[in-house]
Write a protein that binds this DNA or RNA. Structure first.
Length: 538
RNA sequence: GGGGGUGUAGCUCAGCGGCAGAGCACCGGCCUUUUAAGCCGUAGGUCCUGGGUUCGAUUCCCAGCACCCUCACCA
């Protein structure tokens, strides 16, 4: 029997003892629970003195995070979604229920009624006169101070990660707020939210390898979408002039700190718009997302880092405190907080201060290429030499592809502050309208921040014949699995006439990373894809 | 796929070519105002897996697996 089994067995015995006592170890409806934060708020104006109790009663429920039993008196620190609160439990007041306390473990979910008071040391406390077990926990929670830190385990047992690490919960609360802000922002602009197929007989709209699956009854192979683009454009044809989808996309590609095989994008199309309009939409959406999360997140960050620095100073000295401040980018947080105080949209990402205040700088692709790679976009020879120098294979590749490889390698990481890049080579943008005066240039921009691609937008191509030619060229492309499928139905839709439009996709996961200072995309996806582990015996 | 790192108790981590360690959690004892409560005592191990070197390997070597970082791939 492993140790987990031992620990579990002990807890099972305690649970059975509870049941024998007539206490339902898994509880039932527990009405009128006050969030711990609400109790704190309610207690504030009462100005209860240390050692005093108020008249105010409260009912609180949550998971036992800490438990300190001292003979006939115990304190339990209980955590709910809004924070923590201490329960005071005395044998004298609990009477028979004291034996319930003796059967409690860390991690149990309990509820209590009692008066709100303060202990001698001033800690806000509910002095329980009624104690209920709402769910007996059979598995031991992680270490109470460090919590779960093993990254692998954190993702694999996200539920444990969430209930032990409040910061993790906070990231996902912010993610929710950010998505809501984006949704509200687009609805306000007259957009209609839609859902288009995830299972697609023909994939398209991006250059990526798809996941394949099969429908049994129809006996057909289907693809999980790599992009909703071709369906959203059909809606433009259908007369839905402003549409967006918060779209889970699936790309059968590598995994990294910036790539998860399934990821979330907001993709939108606006009839009679163009990519210039889409730049404003990016600024609007990101501003809204910023207001919903980082506007308060940064000052809170400063506060919590400073608090920890003060604690370390006292306990471990100035050196440890300074190291912590450096490691957690206190200076950057202070700078960003100052920016926010002055009305700017400043965030911190991994020690860099990013200023999202619109308008974002706009730079030409060719200029950036000249600045950071030292080559002219049109000088094919020089570009290929540069590719060589950067160690990028270019043999047999299209000129435009090599140009873009060089751009990615030499320029991208320099784009730290939010930036729009426009003037892309047309050859790498098959669904994009070309510049009326220079057909080698596509009417496209990409948004970058922290060296990451954040969004991508076009003046959409609505000429069915050019579209068909572009499709065919890609289908013919050798050794290229991407965009290799001809979508006749999409062409026929364009033949009915699609209004000229701007289209935009913004990576939600990456935006959440930037606005929550999360170094890996896995930190902002609740259940990132991982290789399954052999079944555990415990 | 290339390079680097990690894998030791439920959790967080030390350690070492010669009986496997700490803190927390667990169990027992004392304790009615604690704050990561404290003090005393106990129990808990496939040292990731497989092979090799060795009298002896958790430690050294090789291979594998998993995860992390990085590069490549990736609109």
């Amino acid at each position: 029997m492993s140790e987990v089994d031992h620990l579990k067995a002990r807890r099972i015995r305690k649970r059975d003892a509870l049941i024998e006592m007539g206490m339902d170890a898994y509880g039932r409806r527990f009405p009128d629970v006050m969030p711990t934060a609400a109790v704190r708020k309610a207690a504030g104006p009462l100005s209860i003195q240390p050692g005093q109790r108020s008249e105010l009663r409260g009912r609180v429920a949550g998971r036992i995070a800490l438990l300190r039993v001292m003979g006939k008196l115990a304190f339990a620190t209980v955590r709910d979604e809004t924070g923590t609160l201490q329960f005071g439990l005395s044998k004298a007041e609990l009477g028979e229920q004291w034996s319930v306390l003796e059967l409690l473990d860390l991690g149990d979910i309990i509820g209590a009624d009692g008066v709100i008071g303060r202990t001698k040391t001033g800690e806000l406390t509910i002095w329980a006169d009624n104690l209920t077990v709402l769910a007996k926990s059979l598995r031991p929670p992680p270490e109470k101070w460090h919590g779960l830190t093993d990254v692998d385990l954190r993702y694999r047992q996200r539920c444990v990660d969430l209930f032990t690490n409040p910061d993790v919960r906070d990231v996902f609360r912010q993610r929710s707020s950010i998505i809501q802000a984006i949704r509200d922002c687009l609805i306000k602009e007259g957009y209609c939210e839609v859902d288009t197929p995830v299972l697609q007989p023909i994939y398209g709209g991006a250059a990526a390898r798809p996941f394949t699956t099969h429908h049994n009854t129809l006996d057909i192979d289907l693809y999980l979408r790599i992009s909703p683009e071709l369906y959203l454009k059909r809606l433009l044809v259908g007369g839905m002039e402003r549409v967006f989808e918060i779209s889970r996309n699936f790309r059968n590609e590598g995994i990294s700190t910036r790539h998860n095989p399934e990821f979330t994008m907001v993709e939108l199309y606006e009839a009679y718009g163009d990519y210039q309009v889409m730049m404003e939409r990016v600024e609007q959406m990101v501003s809204a997302a910023f207001e919903a999360s980082t506007r308060t997140g940064v000052p809170q960050g400063v506060e919590s880092i400073e608090g920890e620095v003060r604690r370390l100073e006292k306990e471990k000295g100035a050196e440890a405190a300074a190291a912590y401040a450096r490691e957690h980018h206190l200076d950057a947080y202070r700078q960003a907080a100052q920016g926010i105080a002055q009305g700017r949209l400043t965030a911190v990402f991994q020690g860099d201060v990013l200023d999202f205040t619109p308008p974002w700088p706009r730079h030409e692709y060719a200029d950036l290429l000249r600045e950071y790679a030292g080559v002219a976009m049109t000088d094919v020879q020089a570009v290929r030499r540069k590719a060589e120098e950067l160690g990028i294979g270019h043999a047999g590749k299209d000129d435009a592809v090599v140009v873009n490889d060089v751009f990615d390698a030499a320029v991208e990481r320099h784009l730290v502050g939010p930036t729009f890049v426009f003037g892309y080579p047309a050859a790498i943008c098959p669904l994009t309208r070309r510049h009326p005066e220079d057909p080698s240039i596509a009417l496209r921009f990409e948004a970058f921040a922290a060296g990451m691609e954040l969004g991508n937008a076009y003046t959409e191509l609505n000429d069915p014949e050019i579209q068909e030619v572009n499709f065919k060229r890609r289908v013919a492309g050798e050794g290229d699995e991407t965009m290799a499928v001809m979508d006749e139905d999409f062409i026929s839709a364009l033949e009915y006439g699609m209004p000229p439009a701007g289209g935009l996709g913004v990576g939600i996961d990456r935006l959440v990373m930037l606005l929550t200072d999360s170094p890996s995309i896995r930190d902002v996806i609740l259940f990132p894809l991982q290789r399954p582990q052999p079944a555990r015996t415990s």
